[in-house]
Design a protein around this nucleic acid. Structure first.
Length: 101
DNA sequence: GTCGTGACTAGCC
DNA sequence: CGGCTAGCCACGA
């Protein structure tokens, strides 16, 4: 992997401050690739820095978790650890926790 | 080079 | 509100 696109995604993800979340679409848009949300998700799933890249801070456009390589459960646990409450697979106060680049 | 798939999104009906 | 369609990017067969 390690394509330019993937690298950009990982770099942006690493910039997300603790306690904040963003969306796949936002990341894609930040890369001037609006609509490439799928590729963003792909990058997160295949990122070699899984323990360094906070891919758990990336959720759907409406606050839905979407998915997680290690399981939603783990994702939720990580998020709640950062003061980001998750209810029924959705971010609580999503608009408040939302981070825009 | 084409096709199918995926942690997505937005628009229509 | 639910379902379908089209569009986007990258990857593997």
């Amino acid at each position: 992997m390690a394509t330019a696109f993937f690298d950009r995604v990982w770099k942006l993800l690493s910039k997300i401050p603790k306690g904040k979340v963003t969306t796949y679409g936002e990341i894609a848009r930040a890369l001037k690739k609006q609509g490439a949300a799928r590729a963003v998700g792909n990058a997160c799933n295949a990122n070699p820095f899984a323990s360094s890249v906070p891919c758990h801070r990336v959720v759907g456009a409406n606050g839905l978790l979407g998915g997680f390589a290690l399981g939603k459960k783990a994702k939720i646990r990580l998020l709640e650890k950062e003061d980001i409450l998750v209810k029924n697979g959705r971010i609580v106060d999503f608009k408040v926790k939302f981070w825009r680049f």
